[in-house]
């Protein structure tokens, strides 16, 4: 299987992108140079900034100090660079404190500014309507969205594998009931279902509870696909001689399922899970975009896009829709990788 996957170029590229994204998620706080939650009324809607690499013929990356003016006619805020003040940008600078992997307290970030606080001077992708740095929020938001996808897939994996295996193994009435439940779940239009469920989350809940509830909601529908896929595989494995051999030596159904059948489907499970992940991610993004999923102060790709809901905002401050790009890239990468995995797992499907 590995050999077939490696031959699939596009899928390997997708896989590399996915790995890169998860690495970024793991080191999100290190990559975010500004505190993603820090409000700054003086730095509202700063456009993306350029980092100049050379200063007086020497290599010395820097940004210029921002000067805020208000256009007297349109009353729109304008930012211009004060070319006389260079703020040096350095690697591995100290910034806001965080815990790496939730364990090691540190305040090192990959870049930062010297002399002035990073939060008010460095805006690689600009800032949002509350003056928060968009790049840092993007990195942290990606982490949230990716982990929601991962946890959601894990939940639907457990549900899907168990129900799918049971359904395919026993057949008969058990199969009938499980399959009808799946059909019912799939018949409900997803968006209204999510809306209903999400609307039921009390607004007083903490960010973490909302996070887990949203994960549950997106995985609620996700498991059906996997259960169906697995049911089919298990049904065909039911006729394999090695399964009959195990039965003939007195093995109980649970042993047959977990020792003989489910491991034989691993590649299919992995492929289906990989294809389910992007759906989870875009589900979360969609929900939060509509304001029904995660809400500020939580940060996710959907929450960030929520700030770009207004067409006027997009016209005036186009950098606000930049979170759409990583969303699209990660979903595409997952789909490519999943397709490749599926082809490799079952070249005749």
């Amino acid at each position: 299987m590995r050999r077939r996957f490696v031959k699939h170029r596009l899928a390997v590229c997708g896989g590399l992108v996915v790995v890169a994204f998860y690495l970024a998620a793991a080191f999100a706080d290190f990559l975010a140079y500004s505190d993603p939650g820090k409000l700054d009324a003086q730095r509202i809607l700063v456009p993306p900034q350029r980092v100049s690499l050379w200063s007086a013929g020497r290599f010395s990356p820097h940004v210029y100090r921002l000067v805020r003016t208000r256009n007297p006619e349109t009353l729109v805020l304008d930012y211009s660079a004060d070319r006389s003040v260079e703020i040096p940008v350095v690697l591995f600078a100290h910034g806001y404190p965080y815990r790496l992997f939730g364990l090691f307290p540190t305040d090192i970030h990959w870049i930062g500014t010297r002399g002035e606080p990073t939060e008010s001077s460095l805006f690689l992708l600009g800032s949002d309507a509350l003056g928060r740095d968009l790049f840092s929020r993007l990195v942290v938001g990606t982490r949230t969205s990716l982990t929601i996808g991962l946890v959601g897939v894990c939940i639907s994996l457990v549900l899907g594998v168990i129900l799918g295996a049971v359904s395919g193994f026993y057949g008969g009435i058990v199969d009938l009931v499980i399959q009808r439940v799946i059909e019912m779940l799939r018949a409900i239009p997803t968006l209204p279902l999510w809306l209903g469920l999400a609307a039921a989350i009390p607004p007083t809940w903490s960010v973490t509870s909302v996070y887990f509830t949203i994960t549950l909601i997106v995985s609620f529908v996700g498991w059906t696909e996997l259960a169906r896929e697995l049911r089919g595989r298990i049904m065909s494995l039911r006729h394999e001689d090695f399964v009959l051999a195990a039965e003939l030596c007195g093995a109980r159904p649970r042993r047959i399922m977990f020792v003989h059948m489910i491991p034989a489907c691993t590649s299919h499970i992995i492929a289906t899970a990989t294809l389910a992940l992007p759906t989870m991610i875009s589900s979360e993004t969609a929900l939060s975009f509509l304001g029904l999923g995660l809400r500020s102060p939580a940060i996710s790709l959907g929450v960030l896009l929520n700030g770009a809901q207004n067409i006027q905002a997009v016209a005036l401050y186009p950098w606000l829709i930049s979170p759409a790009l990583p969303t699209a890239v990660i979903v595409l990468a997952f789909n490519l990788m999943g397709d490749g995995l599926r082809d490799a797992a079952d070249p005749y499907a």
Partner: peptide
């Protein structure tokens, strides 16, 4: 029982030890 197809009658994911030991373990 001894089966016809020597390929489908042995679980490809188990070692020979595990395959022959299965009746004993069970």
């Amino acid at each position: 029982m001894v089966f016809q197809d020597p390929y489908s009658s042995l679980n490809p994911r188990l070692s020979v030890l595990d395959i022959i030991a299965e009746p004993l373990v069970v």
